[in-house]
Amino acid sequence: MSNDFYTLNVNGEDHQVADSWAGESLLWVLRERLGFPGAKNACEEGECGSCSVRIGEEVVCSCLVLAGSATEQEITTIEGLSAEGELSDVQQAFIDAGAVQCGFCTPGLLVTIDDLLEKNENPDDLTVREAISGNLCRCTGYGRILEAVQIAAASRRGEKRE
């Protein structure tokens, strides 16, 4: 234990983390200390991707980030993808495609797909499958998730919905 505090920048705002244990993961700190429960905790070993967040320009598993080492970086969680009460284009596409079943993998997938579309507005099927290969979904069989990615990609390219 330490009485020192450190500061994490989450979704554009600084948050102080005090009285923490050195080994706390970013996932745990986000969920249990800072009130960001969107990133989900399942495997805690980087296998499932349900805890995906963006740090700077890269998506990583927040369970594998030591929270105290993530200072002075821009951390974006699912809560930061859209203004409160609004849906992002990817979230809306998930609803439109029916890509949510139990919902546990959804936040991680949304963060990953948002990042993919930031970097590539016109990803082909293989690129999408590769991009989401670290996000496990045990309900949908991925078909509707892949469909949702293409809906969101089309809307980002400014194409009208059919």
């Binding site: 244990w21 080994g23 993961s25 805690e44 070993e45 980087g46 980030v65 030591l66």
Partner: peptide
């Protein structure tokens, strides 16, 4: 990168004193 170390830390199999 933490991808090996944090797996051990999360499992409680690596004591964390100084990092």
């Amino acid at each position: 990168g933490g991808t090996d170390v944090m797996v051990q830390v999360n499992r409680g199999s690596m004591p964390v004193d100084q990092v």
